[in-house]
Amino acid sequence: MSIIYLVKKNDDLISHCTCGESLVGDPGQLDCPWCGCGWLFSCTKCRKAFTFATGVELEKSWEDIAREDLYGYSKKEPSEKELKEWVDFMKGMMGHVEVGRDYIYLDGYFIPADEGPFEVEGWHSEHDFNEPPQITAQHSPEIIERVLSNPEYWNERKI
């Protein structure tokens, strides 16, 4: 059985994960999204951050990935309830992911990297961009400090 899932695309912009296979973990976003939890992916194995992911077809089950992610986070075997909740949540998050398409993470959403102008009401704040800010940051890195990792940006738009 195969599923469509997000894996680390490359080491561009920010990438602290060096795992051979870096699957995207549950966002687990805190109330400080500027720290990176609101705009970077995290690896299911090492929990380290990276910026870009791509949709692939995996020969794994949702439960296998859930177990890896939950164990990577807590270092203990997850309960059946935790596994079910994770699977239900991540299936919803991954529902629009397409094989071969690249994505960024922003405030509760996996957004196509080739997305044009977009507005989104995230888990923490409202956002309005001409393109995903991580894409902008590749040629204008100051957007990281000015927007993505700036508490003022996030709190001025807080929901």
Results as ranks from 00 to 15, higher is better:
residue 28 G to V: 02
residue 104 I to T: 00
residue 57 E to Y: 12
residue 5 Y to K: 11
residue 30 L to Q: 05
residue 25 G to N: 14
residue 2 S to L: 13
residue 157 R to I: 00
residue 62 W to L: 12
residue 42 S to K: 10
residue 3 I to C: 03
residue 53 A to G: 12
residue 131 E to D: 07
residue 116 G to R: 11
residue 104 I to G: 00
residue 22 S to E: 03
residue 24 V to M: 05
residue 140 S to F: 12
residue 123 W to M: 09
residue 149 S to Q: 04
residue 21 E to I: 12
residue 136 T to M: 06
residue 39 W to G: 07
residue 80 E to Y: 15
residue 83 L to T: 14
residue 20 G to H: 14
residue 91 K to W: 05
residue 83 L to M: 14
residue 108 G to M: 07
residue 4 I to W: 10
residue 82 E to D: 06
residue 73 Y to M: 11
residue 69 D to F: 15
residue 40 L to I: 09
residue 30 L to M: 15
residue 1 M to Y: 11
residue 78 P to G: 09
residue 19 C to R: 03
residue 15 S to F: 02
residue 53 A to I: 13
residue 128 D to S: 12
residue 60 K to R: 13
residue 50 F to G: 00
residue 129 F to Y: 06
residue 138 Q to P: 13
residue 81 K to Y: 10
residue 56 V to K: 14
residue 68 E to N: 08
residue 144 I to Q: 02
residue 36 G to K: 01
residue 116 G to V: 08
residue 92 G to A: 00
residue 87 V to R: 02
residue 21 E to D: 01
residue 121 E to D: 11
residue 74 S to P: 03
residue 91 K to M: 06
residue 60 K to P: 01
residue 151 P to I: 05
residue 16 H to D: 06
residue 71 Y to S: 06
residue 127 H to D: 07
residue 9 K to R: 14
residue 88 D to C: 04
residue 141 P to Q: 14
residue 52 F to K: 10
residue 72 G to P: 02
residue 7 V to L: 06
residue 86 W to H: 07
residue 159 I to D: 10
residue 78 P to L: 03
residue 113 A to G: 05
residue 32 C to G: 09
residue 14 I to H: 00
residue 114 D to M: 09
residue 107 D to L: 07
residue 81 K to I: 15
residue 136 T to S: 06
residue 30 L to H: 15
residue 127 H to T: 01
residue 124 H to A: 04
residue 67 R to I: 07
residue 98 E to Q: 10
residue 117 P to E: 01
residue 120 V to F: 01
residue 75 K to L: 04
residue 48 K to R: 09
residue 132 P to S: 03
residue 156 E to I: 10
residue 147 V to P: 05
residue 72 G to E: 02
residue 23 L to D: 11
residue 92 G to D: 04
residue 143 I to P: 05
residue 57 E to N: 15
residue 72 G to A: 08
residue 68 E to A: 05
residue 20 G to Q: 13
